[in-house]
């Protein structure tokens, strides 16, 4: 009888100890998962967009009085790489000075033909298309570019330029 009583008293203690051990194991497992996630993220960055082949495209709108973008398409060596459709809210943000990251692509070192076509409307509501084509020399360093839509007050028009950061 005494033995049964002792066992009955000890059982909850044993259960608590087991719970604590399980909690520790779960915590350790969570930490391992977090560590693994960090490693995977680093690996993913290195494999998918290594610095030697990284090319990034950004877009800004300078004033935007004579042109509002509706869409953009960027081709590299005649292959479509980046496309985007604009909403009114996004154009407002661009007008307020936002820099839009259009995307990162992988580009082998060497010379490449980059063509950007921006379709939109002018200040009279007429459909317009701005484009720029440039030969770009990709080195082993990341290529970071900015497409700038600039107003041309003298012609009441706009043009798109490619700048390098």
């Amino acid at each position: 009888m005494r033995l049964l009583l002792i066992i009955a008293l000890l059982l909850p203690q044993l259960s608590l100890a087991e719970d604590a051990a399980v909690r520790k194991e779960v915590l350790a497992a969570k930490e391992t998962v977090l560590e693994l996630n960090r490693d995977l993220y680093e690996l993913e960055r290195e494999l998918l967009s290594p610095a030697t082949t990284r090319a990034a495209f950004n877009l800004t709108l300078n004033h935007g009085e004579y042109f509002e973008p509706l869409s953009i398409e960027i081709s590299v060596d005649d292959e479509l790489k980046v496309q985007h459709l604009y909403t009114e809210r996004q154009v407002k943000a661009l007008r307020m000075g936002a820099v839009q990251p259009l995307g990162d692509i992988n580009l082998a070192p060497g010379k490449h033909s980059v063509r950007a076509v921006v379709r939109g409307v002018d200040h009279l509501g007429q459909g317009r298309e701005l484009s720029v084509t440039e030969m770009v020399n990709k080195t082993s360093k990341p290529l970071i570019t900015e497409l700038v839509i600039v107003d041309r007050d003298d012609l009441q028009s706009a043009r798109v330029q490619l700048k390098y950061w």
Binding site: E68, L70, L85, T87
Partner: peptide
Amino acid sequence: FTLPAVNGFGQRLAE
């Protein structure tokens, strides 16, 4: 989704 519009700016569902 984001789709272009035939009569103005494109629209994004999330917005």
